[in-house]
Design a binder for these strands. Structure first.
Lengths: 207, 207
DNA sequence: CCACTTGCTGACCGACCAGTCATCAATTAA
DNA sequence: TTAATTGATGACTGGTCGGTCAGCAAGTGG
């Protein structure tokens, strides 16, 4: 009967703690979140958290890694495995992901990286190597394929795949900062950007 | 002779303090900067700072206002007073400002707004009304002029003047987060974006 | 049922910091 | 020269928080 005051669950704790931390950090930011709040949210004491993570910074890194990693995998694979032409892929699956990001909880991670990144160089380096670099690399391959097949004309897009991503970045920042005061239809905005880009870059419109 | 231990300089203090705060906040962020560090940098005591600013947040707001206001004025006037056609303005003065921002100290203000904005709704509201809204408004007028004169064809750019700004946003964030690990030629990137946009939107290339 | 291991707790410590205030000294007016 | 004013100081307070650790109790093996 007497419910035990706690239960040993060594295996699940780390994931529970990073999940709790993700939520807490997203709501209040890194500095402003006491470690104890994370522990409380995970239904656990502060001391326990320090059994699984050496420092608060350590926890932060684990949050980023665990949240971001699977999403990147999926995206890169989607780009490399697609059977679609470039235009169809951009207007289809790419647009879908691009439109979802500014709404998703992940946008708060972007805030954290911008806000705290410069204090954690090894974290941003990891982020560069595992997220940005791989994502841009996949986009670059997609574009190269389009140029090789004659679907796209050669252009600066080959050098700057960021051209595809910049409206997503702006949308994320807009949602984080301006949204309470001024709405932006990020869906329409991002789609308009892709359309304009394609209209400048499609080699030939077939009738 | 004996140099006095301090001098009364009521008039200059606020500007000196906001300047010192701008630098300190840019280097370390808002939360991580003790008020005393700002005072020390301005060569005064902490107590004095509290004679001119009621709270630390108050100081923060003053920093943003004093730093941003004059620059917005200049930009909006440049757009509204130009004699140039849209394409020439975008490839000329606009490009110049757009390329400078990611390098300038102002990029750190962007970080502060992203990092701390959600905790200071009245500040972001002020920023919307005095910076973003006015800047986008001026761009919108520029575009409308171009469409009216037949230089540009009608397009989503009229609805989303943000299309012109998004690569600047991405460049700023890149400089803040990724620059130590991976260089981006933000000049070339932003110019490429403007070129692509114009090549999609110029009504007719005259020979 | 007992002894042993170990996941877990929560009180505690030291450091830091926003904001206050009693006091001082540069300046100004009398 | 002196008195009144006020710009400026810096020690202090109350509170917060990251990180520690001595001990407790849930599980485990005999």
């Amino acid at each position: 009967m007497a419910a035990p005051r706690f239960r040993r669950r060594k295996a699940d704790r780390p994931a529970e703690l990073t999940a709790a931390a993700m939520n807490e950090f997203a709501e209040n930011g890194y500095d402003a979140t006491p470690v104890e709040a994370v522990a409380r949210r995970a239904g656990v004491s502060k001391g326990l958290l320090y059994l699984y993570f050496k420092t608060k910074e350590d926890l932060f890194k684990a949050v980023v890694r665990s949240f971001v990693m699977p999403r990147v995998e999926r995206l890169v694979r989607a780009i490399d495995d697609t059977e679609l032409g470039v235009a169809d892929f951009l207007r289809g699956p790419f647009l879908e992901v691009a439109r979802e990001l500014p709404r998703s909880k992940a946008r708060h991670l972007v805030r954290l990286l911008i806000a705290e990144g410069h204090k954690h160089p090894d974290l941003t380096r990891w982020y560069w190597e595992n997220v940005v670099s791989r994502g841009l690399g996949a986009l670059r391959r997609l574009i190269a394929r389009g140029v090789a097949s004659g679907e796209l004309r050669p252009s600066a897009l080959e050098r700057y795949p960021q051209l595809l991503v910049s409206p997503v970045m702006l949308s994320v920042v807009w949602m984080l900062v301006m949204q309470p005061h001024a709405k932006l239809d990020t869906d329409g905005f991002i789609e308009a950007h892709v359309d304009l880009l394609l209209s400048a870059l499609l080699a030939e419109e077939s009738p």
